[in-house]
Amino acid sequence: HNLTITQGKLFFHYNPKLCLSEIHKMEEVSGTKGRQERNDIALKTNGDQASCENELLKFSYIRTSFDKILLRWEPYWPPDFRDLLGFMLFYKEAPYQNVTEFDGQDACGSNSWTVVDIDPPLRSNDPKSQNHPGWLMRGLKPWTQYAIFVKTLVTFSDERRTYGAKSDIIYVQTDATNPSVPLDPISVSNSSSQIILKWKPPSDPNGNITHYLVFWERQAEDSELFELDYCLKGLKLPSRTWSPPFESEDSQKHNQSEYEDSAGECCSCPKTDSQILKELEESSFRKTFEDYLHNVVFVPRKTSSGTGAEDPRPSRKRRSLGDVGNVTVAVPTVAAFPNTSSTSVPTSPEEHRPFEKVVNKESLVISGLRHFTGYRIELQACNQDTPEERCSVAAYVSARTMPEAKADDIVGPVTHEIFENNVVHLMWQEPKEPNGLIVLYEVSYRRYGDEELHLCVSRKHFALERGCRLRGLSPGNYSVRIRATSLAGNGSWTEPTYFYVTDYLDVPSNIA
């Protein structure tokens, strides 16, 4: 807008934040220059609390790290170098490059900038070799853009010569660093050979998330399962459950009422301010606690030095998902009996873990797994792929695949051998790939016309006998059925096997 004052003059007093240069501009645009008398524009009460600059400061050096910015700028000295009290560095987070010096300023003089007072450097006698002032900004957020400017702080001049310097606002972004852990990993099994893994992005990506790394490792069953005799009275049979499938998407929606109208769909109840505040506090606490764990609990591995020492970490090797089922080394339970199943799973520490690289999504279907087997899954978020990966501390989750139908069934015939004193040795093959492992066998036998009897055969007993022995049988026709019990439950009964026990007292003698 054009402003013209045809008559009258300007009068400025007691404006401590208004620089004289701005008042002189007002004289020019209003056409009143030359009308004012000496005392109409006070030299001592206008701009006496402001830094009124008329020179431009330029930054000469900028260096960044993930949490620091090192700045240096060209030296500046007023005509009387004693008038320079120091520099004021202003900075704040700036997602967009549209910041002005006066953003967030209120009537009390406060604003949204963080201000650092910096002492002037030592003055050199040689004007050509003056030290460049600077400042190291610490405690910054990774991968965050900051708006920065600097200006001088000078003393009051009796001659009211307006001098000083100020830089333009520059924008500097800190470097990326390792992201925080992925949030809320959930693993479920939808079949006997697959596990579905879902997660949420890290709360602090500290860069642009480029991919996720998912490692999985087959877990050995508890050692007590191999040692305890679950045929003993009072000892509860062990059981394991597989990871249940995901709930429906509708039930997972946030901010939804727990109660549904019987007449149909209901609208979600909005969260109160107290609920939102509580969630923010919980989120802040979780982030602080995660940072504490990362800094205190997890110790970084030592990389190899120039002395030739090897990095103890196993090298990563990509495998196809079809090879995942046989990740671990199978060892027989008892070496003397080769027909026992290889369900003991000690994992070799030198073995390469299978892994998958996930790009542009937060889910993965891990296939080719062994049925009813526990897996430990390790999830890392990465925001750099080359020249070397920059990934987060791992988040861990466990899951067990679903049982395989008929995996616990005894394959092959049940054979028998009759000894003296009416002892019958029953023999059968253990299931080759049971659900988890076989903890015991149930032997059901009966003599024709009598009630059915049951015998429990422990895992250890089966390994020693290759089956079991029935003792003290009365003469007669017998039928026997056997079924295995694994961590997933009972298998199917075998087809009945028949044998006849004679009275050993009636056996004919070869003595003449």
Rank of each mutant, 00 (worst) to 15 (best):
H254L: 11
F337D: 08
S363Q: 12
G325V: 10
P508V: 12
N490A: 05
D250T: 11
L440S: 02
R481L: 09
N208L: 09
S367H: 07
F355E: 10
N435F: 04
P332S: 12
E249M: 03
F355T: 07
E356I: 07
G472W: 13
E362M: 12
L505P: 09
A336V: 09
C456G: 07
Y375H: 11
E265S: 13
K361P: 07
R218G: 12
I438A: 04
Y448T: 14
C267P: 07
E495T: 13
K271R: 05
Y478I: 01
A220K: 08
W242Q: 08
Y445T: 05
F419R: 15
V214N: 01
K287A: 02
V501K: 03
F298E: 02
L225T: 07
N339M: 06
V507R: 12
V345A: 10
T485N: 03
N383M: 04
S243I: 09
K460C: 07
Y292G: 00
Y504Q: 13
L453F: 05
K432S: 13
P338Y: 08
P312M: 07
N360S: 11
G449W: 04
Y375A: 08
E442S: 14
R447M: 05
L293R: 01
L487R: 15
S274R: 11
Y212L: 01
E281A: 11
C391P: 01
N477H: 11
Y292I: 02
F462Q: 12
E260C: 04
T485F: 11
D323T: 14
D250R: 04
Q219V: 12
P338R: 11
F285G: 04
F285Q: 04
V299I: 14
E224Y: 15
R446A: 11
A220V: 12
W493A: 00
L321Q: 14
L453M: 09
P314V: 05
K361E: 08
F462K: 08
D385W: 09
I438C: 07
F372G: 04
R481A: 10
F355D: 03
T328L: 10
S486T: 14
Y504V: 09
E451F: 15
A463M: 09
E420G: 13
G234M: 10
T288G: 06
P349C: 15
V331F: 07
Y478M: 01
E388W: 08
N339D: 10
S342K: 09
T497S: 09
P245A: 11
P270S: 06
N490Y: 15
E310S: 11
C266T: 05
E420Y: 13
S304L: 06
L455R: 14
T494D: 00
Y441L: 01
Q275S: 04
K271C: 10
G207S: 08
M427Q: 05
E265N: 15
A399N: 03
N360H: 14
E224V: 10
E290P: 02
K357Q: 09
G449S: 12
Y445A: 11
I482Y: 01
I418M: 02
K287M: 05
F337Y: 12
G491W: 00
A407Y: 04
S474T: 09
S248F: 14
V331I: 13
E282M: 05
Q275G: 04
R240K: 15
L280V: 11
T373L: 06
M402F: 08
R483H: 05
D506F: 15
G264Q: 04
K432M: 07
G476W: 01
H461K: 12
S248H: 03
G467T: 03
A330S: 15
N383P: 02
K271A: 08
E388R: 09
T494R: 01
N490D: 04
K317F: 15
H425R: 12
T303Q: 12
E265M: 12
Y448E: 05
E224I: 07
S257Q: 08
N295T: 05
I418D: 02
L487Q: 03
I366K: 09
S398I: 07
V439H: 09
T288Y: 11
V214Q: 00
D261H: 14
D408V: 02
D408E: 03
T386A: 09
S262Q: 12
T386E: 11
S341F: 12
V397Q: 03
W242C: 04
N360K: 15
S320D: 11
L437S: 03
T303E: 14
D291W: 04
G325R: 04
S274H: 10
F372P: 01
V327F: 12
E265K: 07
P349Y: 11
H425V: 15
D273G: 07
V414A: 06
S239L: 15
T340C: 09
T343S: 08
S262A: 07
D408S: 06
E389K: 11
D261G: 07
I276E: 02
S341Y: 00
L369A: 05
E279T: 05
E465H: 14
L379M: 07
R319N: 14
L321E: 13
E247Y: 12
F355M: 09
G308Y: 15
V414S: 02
D250N: 14
C267K: 03
Y441I: 00
E465S: 13
L225I: 07
S284I: 09
R316I: 15
K361S: 10
F289I: 03
P387L: 10
E227Q: 10
A309H: 14
D229M: 06
V297R: 02
E221V: 15
A488V: 13
N477P: 12
E404A: 04
M427K: 10
N206R: 03
F246K: 11
S348N: 14
M402V: 05
D273C: 09
L321A: 10
F226I: 08
P238L: 04
